[in-house]
Nucleic acid binder design. Structure first.
Lengths: 223, 223
DNA sequence: AAGCGTCTCCCCCGTGCGGGGGAGATCCGC
DNA sequence: GCGGATCTCCCCCGCACGGGGGAGACGCTT
């Protein structure tokens, strides 16, 4: 496989530990044909970032606070059209995670213990459309889940609607549904609809997680 | 504390995962007064390296294949004269590890999840002869929430207790009361008590407002 | 005209959340 | 010894929240 003359492969790093992100960045950016275009600390922050940065590859941690890598993988593939390739990164050779990751639609599976050369190789491989499955025995499973990706494509073109974003901003200021309703001069049932939509799109379980995602993704900023 | 005009602090990295070493190196070498002088992949390799490189600080992983960080710490302190300061680096806030590490003679204790600034700070601190015992995140919260927040409805004026701060941190990661209870190995009723105390002291109406306060005050930070 | 997406509002329903009490155990300082 | 603080757990209770449905009105593109 030859990489000369290619456009650089763009990568988004998703891991809750800054240290791991720094490590991946150091390893990947040492390659002239690979470019890290962004980082996220949680799966919940991934979708808007993918939409904005349109990376070729997402390196996704499994264990993360709000939304784990499996969930985030599902969310990205479900809500983003022309989605990036996704490499799920984990610490242990957990077969369950491999299986789950494949079911979720991941293209690659990588251990954190891997040597830099393997990591670089994995990124290049999935960027080229190949799938990379660590244990050979699991490779067979890939075939069974190979047809996804066409079906799920895009409910709406964009993430949050303007109204939903407005509601999320008010949620992130601590307002209750009733207060948001009063502020926006609509019924509380309407607000509930918007809140539900926000929770669904962000993969949040409740308004608290949604607000956390808003902070973590930079949608709102402290200060 | 002023670092200008100092000799650079030399650091030896000991971790079995190249990724983590690369991350630490990237984070530390970004500082002009810190220099990474060597790396080791296992505790067993540390002693000769320490003898040869004479680093000021050793950043030591706990979990390693041949000799773990606790053992390696003991070995270094026992066999090397004028030994370096040792920061034990681990993944989880495992009290047992903290205790063991301190018993072994470690000068500092650091979580891999820490933000770069905290890691850098820890290295400088132990290099200066200070000891850095409990996770910086915990320490920070106590200090931060100790005296502020005097105004408002809160009548106690005493700030958050350690336990309450711990609960708030978990709230700020999106955990429900039941999940926090499971994490802290206590009953949900206990968690409810702590949550209520946190809400009262922060002047928050619900957990969402408490989490917002946590972000806005710097108690937790995005990224 | 048809279709889609958005915004609006409505129903039912379960439950997690938070308030308001109380109480025992431990530790620490006076 | 005694009081205070902290951590733990328990009761009852109201309600906001969130999930599951559905539906009408508007504006847009096709």
């Amino acid at each position: 496989m030859i990489y000369a003359g290619r456009m650089p492969v763009t990568v988004l790093l998703v891991d809750d530990e800054p240290l791991v992100r720094a490590g991946l960045r150091a390893v990947l950016e040492a390659q002239p044909d690979i470019q890290v275009v962004g980082e996220a600390a949680d799966g919940a922050a991934v979708i808007p970032l993918v939409r904005r940065l349109r990376p070729d590859v997402v390196a996704m941690d499994v264990r993360m606070p709000l939304m784990d890598g499996i969930e985030a993988t599902r969310a990205v593939l479900r809500t983003v059209d022309a989605p990036p390739k996704i490499i799920v990164v984990t610490t242990f050779e957990d077969d369950e995670f491999v299986y789950e990751a494949l079911r979720a639609g991941a293209d690659g599976f990588l251990l954190k213990r891997s040597r830099p050369a393997e990591i670089v190789h994995a990124v290049r491989l999935v960027a080229d459309g190949e799938s990379l499955l660590f244990p050979a025995s699991v490779r067979r499973l890939a075939a069974r889940f190979g047809e996804r990706r066409t079906a799920g494509a895009a409910l709406t073109g964009a993430g949050l609607t303007e109204r939903e974003a407005e509601v999320l901003r008010l949620m992130a200021r601590g307002l209750s549904n009733a207060e948001i309703a009063a502020r926006l001069v609509v019924g509380t049932e309407t607000v509930k609809s918007h809140v539900s939509a926000v929770l669904a799109k962000l993969g949040a379980r409740d308004r608290t997680q949604a607000v956390i995602a808003a902070y973590e993704s930079g949608f709102v900023a402290p200060g």
